[in-house]
């Protein structure tokens, strides 16, 4: 299988970047997209060129490290997948595949396809946890959580933090990411004591990091590999009003 990659190359954050074309032969349909990039990198090494820097780690769709914009879509042509779970069988012989890094001013480019998503960590840092020290827990079954609540908390908790929501959003809004974490914890009884503070602090940080505001285009929930529903954002908004009024 032969395709042409057009890949964003950029030396570092401050450098000027550009799309560069690479014709790659010898690919197979069973290869994952990232394996095709591996293959291209091996060719580049043997041609004495620098390899393309791209993010990846677990390659099974859970760590959230991988993520590039492929042919105009976050994580490629399929809904709700990660880049690492995209396979070359999704492309045709002779295709041109444009690969760009996540675009958002809060995600500066580090190099080539690698961006800095530490803004996400700083949002979590502002309250995406339950303030309880190791060793202070009571017997687990002393806290009863109905299956429905637990399941819906789990739905939100499934976020892998890849940043596709921000990348695909025309506003570079981090609302889906932030809402997922807030709702995961605020739905559970364990998260109640600091529910309002968590919500206000995390959303404040989200704004401080310069993420845009949500206008409900719905693109994020289509691209989200963890299937996080956009209703999470609406729920966050509802909780925000409550927190402002009663927090």
């Amino acid at each position: 299988m032969k395709v042409t990659f057009k890949i964003w190359r950029q030396e570092n954050t401050d450098a000027q970047g550009e799309l560069k074309a690479y014709e790659v032969d010898g690919l197979s349909e069973d290869m994952s997209f990232l394996e095709a990039l591996d293959h291209l990198n091996e060719i580049l090494v043997l041609k004495d060129e620098k390899v393309i820097a791209f993010e990846h780690d677990c390659r099974e769709g859970i760590c959230g490290q991988c993520g590039v914009f492929i042919n105009g879509r976050a994580h490629g042509p399929h809904n709700n997948t990660t880049t690492c779970q995209l396979h070359m069988r999704s492309f045709k012989e002779g295709d041109t595949i444009v690969v760009e890094p996540w675009r958002a001013s809060s995600f500066p480019i580090v190099k080539d396809l690698v961006v800095d998503r530490s803004a996400f960590d700083r949002i979590i840092q502002q309250g995406g946890y339950i303030t309880a020290k190791t060793g202070t827990a009571a017997e687990a079954n002393a806290i009863l959580v109905s299956k429905e609540v637990s399941d819906s908390a789990m739905d939100a908790a499934a976020c892998i933090g890849c940043g596709a929501c921000v990348a695909t959003c025309k506003n570079a809004s981090a609302a889906l990411f932030t809402a997922a974490k807030i709702n995961h914890l605020n739905k559970l009884p364990q998260g109640q004591p600091e529910a309002h503070r968590r919500l206000l602090d995390m959303t404040a940080q989200m704004e401080f990091e310069n993420f845009g505001s949500c206008t409900f285009t719905g693109a994020c929930e289509i691209e989200c590999p963890a299937d996080i529903s956009i209703s999470n954002i609406a729920e966050m908004n509802a909780r925000y009003v409550k927190a402002k009024l009663f927090g």
Binding site: I130, A132, A137, A140, N141, S146, S150, D151, A153, Q190
Partner: peptide
Amino acid sequence: APLIDHFVQQGVPFAREYGGVL
């Protein structure tokens, strides 16, 4: 056993029975 207590306290959404127990 105390580790499960710890993780429940930290908000891990473990699978539950309908009655609310783990």
